[in-house]
């Protein structure tokens, strides 16, 4: 951003004011993350600066406490299963959506991504009522199915957008050369759209791993997920271990999402944008 040579004093003022304001807003955006990570190394159980000393005691508590470790295990297990289920369901559906001859496309698309739009508390209440009737409350399969509902729309959206850049004459060429539809998919299509599929899978993983509201409703203490344990950690006893858990989650989700961003850039480069 450059100031034009014909700038009036008002413009000069507005220019510097905008820059300063932008700086403050960016600071506002990053401050909670910057503030909470150092506090996780505080040697005293307070949330204030300056810290009297550094220690890893909250991390030690996180990794040695059975409740936290159990929660990590449940969350990882659920997230992996959700990723597998929703990536398969979502990718196959995206292949159908990408076909020009799909009838009722707007209605179908609307239904498929509706879990992304409906406030999650409504989904949670509905799923609780449904699970209570079919006996899936407080079970891992119930948790996985519910999270798959929430995660699949992300796979559909990412894979569909990757497919929009896919040159369908490639698969027609393969089919013309005698490849079966399955072979066309595995040998031609999948390698090209794989960045979209992988980033969809990562989104699905993060969606399940971070999800709290549905887990609060349909799981019991045995299937306590990591977000649920954090929520309890804040509500019941304000333990500084939550700062360690939050810091670990920040690093974890940022690593995953940097992966998504790199994949997205790769797709764009391949498309020649």
């Amino acid at each position: 951003m450059k100031l034009p040579s014909y700038a009036t004093p008002i413009e000069k003022f507005a220019y510097y004011a905008t820059l300063a304001f932008t700086g403050l807003v960016l600071l506002f955006l990053i401050s909670p993350i910057l503030a909470i990570m150092p506090l996780s190394f505080n040697s005293e159980p307070y949330f204030s600066y300056p810290m009297p000393g550094l220690s890893l005691r909250w991390y030690e508590d996180f990794f040695s406490n059975e409740r936290w470790m159990n929660a990590v295990k449940v969350s990882l297990l659920a997230a992996v299963l959700v990723t597998i289920l929703s990536t398969i369901l979502g990718t196959v559906a995206a292949l159908g959506l990408a076909r020009a001859n799909l009838p009722f496309k707007p209605v179908i698309l609307g239904v498929l991504i509706s879990p992304m739009i409906v406030p999650v508390i409504i989904t949670a209440v509905g799923i609780y009522l449904f699970y209570a009737q079919i006996g899936l409350i407080a079970s891992i399969p119930g948790l996985v199915l519910a999270h798959t509902v929430l995660a699949t729309p992300f796979v559909v959206v990412t894979v569909t957008s990757t497919l929009s850049g896919f040159d369908h004459s490639l698969s027609r060429a393969a089919a013309g050369l005698g490849a079966t539809p399955f072979r066309v998919f595995t040998a031609i299509m999948l390698p090209i759209i794989s960045p979209g599929v992988i980033s969809g899978a990562l989104f699905a993983f993060v969606t399940s791993f971070d999800e709290l509201v549905v887990a609060l409703f349909i799981t019991s203490a045995e299937q306590r997920t990591l977000p649920k344990q954090m929520f309890a950690g804040i509500r019941e006893q304000i333990s500084p271990t939550i700062t360690a858990a939050a810091s670990i989650l920040i690093v974890f989700s940022v690593a995953l999402l940097v992966g998504i961003e790199l994949l997205r850039r790769r797709t764009e480069r391949l498309r020649g944008h």
Binding site: L89, G90, V92, A93, L95, G96, L97, R99, N101, L102, P103, I108, V111, L112, S114, P115, V118, I122, T123, V125, G126, I127, L129, F130, Q133, L145, A146, T148, V149, T152, V156
Partner: peptide, 23 residues
């Protein structure tokens, strides 16, 4: 095309639309 969309569509109807209707 419908056959490809069908599995997810049915899944969403059973595990999302039915719960919303129940609510």
């Amino acid at each position: 095309a419908l056959a490809l969309v069908a599995p997810l569509f049915l899944f969403i109807v059973v595990s999302f639309v039915i719960p919303i209707v129940l609510m």
